[in-house]
Design a binder for these strands. Sequence first.
DNA 1: CACCCCACTTAGAAAGCCCGAT
DNA 2: ATCGGGCTTTCTAAGTGGGGTG
Length: 790
Amino acid sequence: MAVQTSTKLNLCDDDDEKPLVFKRSNPKSKQNQLDGQLKQLPEQNKSSTIKEESNSIEHPAKENSDSEDAKPIKARLGKPCEDSDDDKPLSSRITPKKVGTSGSQPYDSKERKPVASKVQKNFSSTTDKGKTSYVISTKRPLDKANISEKSSAKRPKVSDSSTSIKNMQVSAKKEPKKEDDDDFIPISQRIKKATSDNKSPVTKQKVTKVGPSSIKKKIKKGQKASQFSKYSKSTTVPPSSNDGQKKWTSLVHNGVIFPPPYKSHGIKMLYSGKPVNLSPEQEEVATMYAVMKDTDYVQKQTFRNNFWNDWHKLLGKNHIIQKLDACDFSPIYDWYQNEKEKKKQMSTEEKKALKEDKLKEEEKYMWAVVDGVKEKVGNFRVEPPGLFRGRGEHPKSGKLKRRIRPSDVTINIGKDAPIPECPIPGESWKEVRHDNTVTWLAFWNDPINQREFKYVFLAPSSSLKGQSDKEKYEKARMLKDYIGNIRAAYTRDFTSKDGTKRQIAVATYLIDKLALRAGNEKDDDEADTVGCCTLKVENVKAIAPNSLEFNFLGKDSIRYENTVEVEIPVYKAIIQFQTGKRGSDDLFDRLDTSKLNAHLKELMPGLTAKVFRTYNASITLDNILNKETKEGDLSEKVVVYQHANKEVAIICNHQRTISKSHSAQMSRLLEKIGNLQSTLKELKTDLDRAKKGRPPLKDADGKQKRNLTPEALERKIAQTTVKIEKMELDMRTKEDLKTVALGTSKINYLDPRITVAWCKRHEVPIEKIFNKSLLAKFAWAMDVDPDFRF
DNA sequence: CACCCCACTTAGAAAGCCCGAT
DNA sequence: ATCGGGCTTTCTAAGTGGGGTG
């Protein structure tokens, strides 16, 4: 054990990464913009949360959470969420300070409070110990290696780079390349050296695995292994991962399924108050619009204009309908609501029968056989026609997305597999390919943007997806060994005389510290959003002495609002980048994502901007779980996980819109609590009286209550108190999480091995954290060693 | 290098389902 | 039996990033 422990510690420590800690306010923005709904919220809600961050990753959370519960709800609601203070790990050792968050924004939207949700994950880095799972994990690397060797054919470049991460790491560390060129010794090299000296991964791994750990494992596993292993799918992971090129050897599937042809309902909409005849094609599009009546899409002028343009074309120049404003779609809307209602009213048997029919019809499309293994297909249904629902201010929002036909679809399938029959009689596929260097089963061009494609892939539970998921996390773990030097290097370059270098340094810093996305260029016919490299001068405000206030729309037009204290050189550099520019000019004028990534690749093999997000998310989870998990009951542990999950979601700015019923729900809860409190008061009064041998007071209706013993009353009081506390906690949690989306990070950013290992160590059933889909998706992580740390 | 093409991951909203309180 | 609400699942939009080309 000792050994193990130490290992663990080391790993942890290695976190050399001390958290940078930034704070971020929470951003939540998009919704705000869009919806007015938010406004409805009661003030209490608004209070919230901004978080600021504390510095270190470690302590923050605990304090908050513990203490808070005790306070009255209102008080809690009122506070900014302190919980959040945690540290955000982005950290570096560079030590930035925190800043208070931005003050100006309205809190409403931003708040996020602690979550209650369930998931957590941890993992430790590197230890792959043997074990079954181990096999799996190792596979890739090995595979790759093997493959690369074998296949001379395809591997142009990919293969090289793709060599297994592990291999790379090892080699890198061991033999630091000394070639470092120019002045700048590649960080990677340096890092390698450093790491190799003390704790090269290799060493770590071995130590951990071999020693005591194995013993531990056995013990632990004895109890739980089976539970976890039932989800693990070691067998499925094919050893065959190739690196870059060959993705499969045999591929069999049945193609895709098309939506049924349009069935006219014949309901007449009104134009200037009079019924209008429409052809089925015209009616179909009118119905698409009618049905959206109570979405906020139709409130947007862009949406209506685009819809009108396309529909008008269908109607023809001389149609009676000449303007959208005189259209009344409500007959169609009402018909639709009625149909929905009818469906709801069907008996359960009818519903079941309907469902079975559908299943039968789709069953054959749901599966593919990849290298002899049956795998689920992700999206085998071709997208039905509809009105394009672009997010944010998308210039094409509302345009008609036309029906996709077999002649639009290209199928990819094994050479020896039967070509799927075209499901629409008389039509045929656009093309059939046999390309085993890609994983898609079919694609068609996006009707909204012809230059883009819509692919049909395997489901996340497939080994193909699982393997690449695992590779993603291995790469992020590799960053652990390089991050120290990378931070040191960019810190040095904050003051470089080379302007490009300076921009790269600052951009990298922001990506690392704030988990910003890379920020590729966008076309004019897309919503105007930005990432790091595309930040505009107006998106960042320097606030003396050394804080930066960020405010911009990111992916999905979600607003990022955060004020952060940064190092002085960064602060100065930003001001310098802004000098002489207009607000709408690029902050980083000598930079784009490809330059940035090219630079990152010099620092670590395979490193790109997005790896920092994965790294920071996962390392944060690992750190928080390990710091905050205490002895305690199951639900307390789950709360710790949820808290960690929430912190990650905040770092990554994963938001959701406040549900329409949120404020109603809150007031309902408040009312219930109020009732309980008066009950409590009565009980206390009755208790006092009972102690003096007097009967209870009459209840609100004037009826006489039952005569209870003081003991019974005390029991009731205790029960009621507990109930109130629980409700207050629920309420706080709900308020806290009303704008935080926990799922995204769980699905995409948190190495599942962290979670699985933590569950094993703390005897938390994995089902408390992962739902069925996640268990299937993360089958590859199930047999991780309990000592695993990210 | 700018541009385009392509493949694949990441994302929030909507729809569906399920379960407990009434 | 109904309703409300949370959690899942589905859907598809919106990102990232690699590679080829001229």
